[in-house]
Design a protein around this nucleic acid. Structure first.
Length: 467
RNA sequence: GUUCAUGUAGACAAAUAGGUAAAAUCACCGCCCUUUCAAGGCGGAACCUGCGGGUUCAAUUCCCGUCAUGAACGCCA
């Protein structure tokens, strides 16, 4: 039988990196096994579910390239089916109506807690054979004895005694089904063979297995993957900065870098750190997922992002840069060819946003210099150097790197100064900061006209500051 | 509180079926390269495997206890 996995987020917010990693593992397993990956939106919490969140999840998955073969399915469209299954359980005697008030339940819980017991429903209505009424809920009749055994692909064998479980509610008094019932029904109906999800669900699994057994349904294989924590070891939350997948896109990360980073959390393949999409699929196996939670480390993500930007085809990169440049508020008009620029700039940045700022000076004039750099490089003594450069460059017709370099070389020799004394002020004069590829190719890209103009601007600036 | 899960350097993580001075990678430090910023090369520091017992000739790997963290115990998912 073909493998079928699913990702089942509830649309109560954006897709965060933890959810994305769970989706990734689930997707990888399906792809590796040549099976199907299904997307199911668990939107039965009507209070908190929003369409906006659904869209955010869909958009995030598309950006990451986590394509699904079926879905998205919505649980809110399946209410009739849940009703049907609940009725089936009622008919078979595996479920019953309960009219215990919330007050009674509350008191029961408090008494149990005070008694240092695990709070559980006491089965008050279990054998009352109550009929449906306005205020009744339906409870699942959990077995009283015996162990539930989970053969988890990542956690190994986990055994839980039925005495730890109680008769959970599967239908609320308003007639809607609860989570543990809906997952079971959907996974069953969708013929999910491998339930790959966060290990925060491990405790729910025995209940779900019991329902599945009552339904005489075949059990799926479970794989409970560890959580991702924030870099402080605490649970991931908004205060950890960019935890939303789309935020990483905005911040200039490449989807392949994020995917590569996420796949290495709780999973490894020997020494290998870099995995293409194809390699992940080929090498991934759920049994190689380790059992412990991991912390999200932004610095390593940055390193991977740099790696992927550095090795990206400049033409493709140029395409991707369009939006970032637009957002940065400048245009490519009257500037050098972007692909040519990226070819020499792409290896010296961590993110696309950073890259966008690095190349800005080629397309947009500026009137301020990096203060620290200006203080260091723009001294009175540099005036003659810049003026000499300006003069030589204005007479240079063959505007190519080699010739440009020759001018710097001449200046170094005739003025008898070090290379740094010429190159650095020159770089600052044309870029406004001090970060660029070698100065000759930088100037070639900038063009003669702008170079002269910026040299003039720098000379004026130094004169003004020196006064 | 009860139950379940987890605990190897700052982070990620490896260590054939227990095997004998605990890999790799990111970060950090130093050196080389260098026209800035990077990249790259070389080297270094850092864990005695949460802690305490036990089994064994030998334990990160098995067992018990303990501590810490997380999860479940909801008419949330």
């Amino acid at each position: 039988m073909s493998v079928r996995t699913r990702f089942a987020p509830s649309p109560t917010g954006y897709l965060h990196v933890g959810g994305a990693r769970t989706a990734l593992f689930s997707w990888l397993y399906a792809r590796k096994m040549g099976g199907q990956f299904i997307l199911r939106i668990e939107d039965t919490d009507r209070e908190r579910s929003t369409e906006e969140s659904v869209n955010a999840i869909l958009e995030s998955m598309e950006w990451l390239g986590l394509d699904y073969d079926e879905g998205p399915f919505y649980q809110t469209h399946q209410f009739a089916r849940y009703k049907e299954v609940i009725q089936q359980l009622l008919d078979s005697g595996d479920a019953y109506f309960c009219d215990c008030s919330r007050e009674r339940l509350g008191e029961l819980r408090e008494a149990q807690m005070a008694n240092k017991e695990k709070p559980r429903y006491d089965g008050c209505c279990r054998d009352k054979k109550l009929a449906a009424a306005d205020n009744t809920v339906v409870r699942f009749k959990n077995p009283l004895e015996g162990d539930v055994v989970i053969d988890d692909m990542v956690k190994g064998q986990v055994k839980i005694n039925n005495r730890e479980l109680d008769d959970l509610i599967i239908e609320r008094s308003d007639g809607t089904p609860t989570y543990n019932l809906t997952v079971v029904v959907d996974d069953w109906d969708m013929k999910i063979t491998h339930v790959i999800r966060g290990d925060d669900h491990l405790n729910n699994t025995p209940r779900q297995i019991n329902i599945l057994k009552a339904l005489d349904a075949e059990l799926p294989v479970y794989a409970h993957v560890p959580m991702i924590l924030g870099d402080d070891g605490k649970r991931l939350s908004k205060r950890h900065g960019a935890v939303s997948v789309m935020q990483y896109k905005e911040d200039g990360f490449l989807p392949e870098a994020l995917m590569n980073y996420l796949v290495r959390l709780s999973w490894s393949h020997g020494d290998q750190e870099i995995f293409s999409r194809e390699e992940m699929i080929k090498l991934f196996d759920a049994v190689d997922i380790n059992t412990s939670a991991s912390a999200f480390n932004s610095e390593k993500l940055l390193w991977l992002n740099q790696h992927y930007i550095k090795n990206k085809n400049p033409d493709v990169l140029a395409q991707q840069m369009q939006n970032y440049i637009k957002n940065a508020g400048y245009t490519l008009d009257n500037g050098p060819d972007l692909t040519a620029v990226l070819t020499v700039f792409q290896e010296r940045c961590n993110t696309l946003v950073e890259l966008t700022e690095d190349i800005r000076f080629l397309y947009q004039d500026f009137d301020e210099y990096n203060a620290k750099q200006a203080k260091k490089q723009f001294k009175e003594a540099t005036l003659p150097i810049l003026e000499s450069l300006k003069q030589q460059y204005s007479g240079l017709d063959n505007w190519v790197a080699e010739a440009i370099h020759q001018v710097v070389e001449n200046t170094v020799n005739t003025l008898e100064v070090g290379f740094g004394k010429v190159g650095q002020p020159l770089r600052l004069a044309v870029t406004g900061h001090g970060k660029s590829p070698s100065i000759d190719v930088t100037l070639e890209l900038l063009g003669k006209e702008k170079t002269l103009q910026r040299l003039e601007q720098a000379v004026e600036y130094i004169k003004k500051v020196s006064d």
